[in-house]
Design a protein around this nucleic acid. Structure first.
Lengths: 216, 216
DNA sequence: GGCGCAAGGATTGTCAACAATTTCGTCCGC
DNA sequence: GCGGACGAAATTGTTGACAATCCTTGCGCC
């Protein structure tokens, strides 16, 4: 059916299209095209583009339209540096605030990670990686940090994604992940922060190897 | 004159109005009112509100319009916690990257701060405070961190502002500021980070004393 | 007197048309 | 052959009107 589409949907659709690579970095986003593609009015699309520009996913230039923002390797590194300190903060908060239930969840993720690496299941490990970071942030219950991280993650999904597929990456990051879990379970805030920072520092070191992301 | 007003101007005008207290937290921002006040079309105002919502200055609810976002004390603390770690990162980067010229500038600010506190010039000290943080960020040359901090600062200007006026605050923060300068001048990244974090931790501790900001 | 409820006003969301700007191809002069 | 001016096409920016939604107010009913 020709769907009735409201404002928020267009934002979500375009965002998802960018994440999934349907719109590649640098690609022009022309308002009429999007409006026909998503069955929304041009005003709706326009508003969506303004919002996405605010999220840093889209670059808008006066009278010249919008395009998918391309993040350079240098910028991806800067993003990861900020992530490092903010996720470090979250880890510290998580160590302070985690309930017994939370700790059990974290330990479970750690165990599953070990199993995934043992079994050579890269995909499962990647998913667990995502879940560990998400859980730490949830436990930290730090809304501002969470919002900042969401923004930053959106901007370099492409770099992140390629990182997980590097051969041998898992065996490097597994002990780091386990150390994060242990530190939080020990309710040692500064150790948890240090562990998270060490992990992300290692990610940053690895980033140049994956290089600038090309098309899918 | 009835001025021709373009999109970006409305954003700037509304942002400034919020900063200067012309629009108080919680106040509704009605599109037609703003469009007549700033001599812009409603679509332009609308776009500006979407953008400001992205900056966190304005809260927009579906079909209910926009209002100036009120940040609670709790949220101000969270914001400052994130600032603490990100400015810490900037301080560390600044220590690594500062040129001799930069160091001279920082030392100059430090000296002026000492003088301002000696002379009891609270206003000058407040301005120097702002300049020290700005300079550190500039020297760090970390665009992403800079953008994050800009966003965060915009959200709690009101809290920040009141903090500087607390009696006796300057004598507490002066040595912290000087330690930041010294650490950067010693090109000691981790010491600089620690100094910056200690300073902002002290700010966070002080925040509850200023309380929730009332109207001007 | 309090409560559900409908009508009215106020405000936002959406749309289509128009104006302004940029971009790109073409043609002319050199 | 090459550079610059001209013009058409493409695209964005703006405007006014209309539709949808929410809030308020006043009325009837219990």
């Amino acid at each position: 059916m020709s769907p009735a589409v409201e404002s928020g949907d267009v934002v979500d659709n375009v965002r998802r299209a960018i994440f999934e690579g349907d719109f590649v970095p640098g690609q022009r986003l022309i308002e009429v095209d999007l409006s026909s593609q998503f069955h929304a009015s041009r005003a709706t699309v326009r508003s969506a583009l303004v919002q996405l520009a605010g999220e840093g996913l889209v670059e808008r230039i006066q009278n010249r339209g919008a395009r998918v923002r391309a993040v350079s390797l240098d910028e991806a590194i800067e993003i990861s540096e900020v992530r490092m300190v903010v996720e470090g903060l979250c880890a510290a908060k998580a160590a302070e605030r985690a309930s017994d239930q939370d700790l059990a969840t974290l330990r479970g993720i750690g165990d599953d990670m070990r199993a995934a690496v043992d079994g050579g299941d890269v995909l499962a490990y990647s998913e667990l990686n995502r879940r560990l970071h998400t859980t730490v942030r949830a436990v930290a219950d730090q809304g501002v940090a969470d919002a900042v991280l969401d923004r930053l993650r959106g901007q370099n999904v492409r770099h992140q994604y390629r990182l997980a597929l590097l051969p041998g990456r898992a065996s490097v990051s597994l002990p780091q992940h386990l150390e994060i879990v242990e530190a939080i379970c020990a309710r040692d805030a500064s150790r948890a922060e240090a562990a998270m920072r060490a992990h992300l520092a290692s990610v940053i070191e690895t980033l140049p190897q994956v290089g600038s992301p090309a098309a899918t």
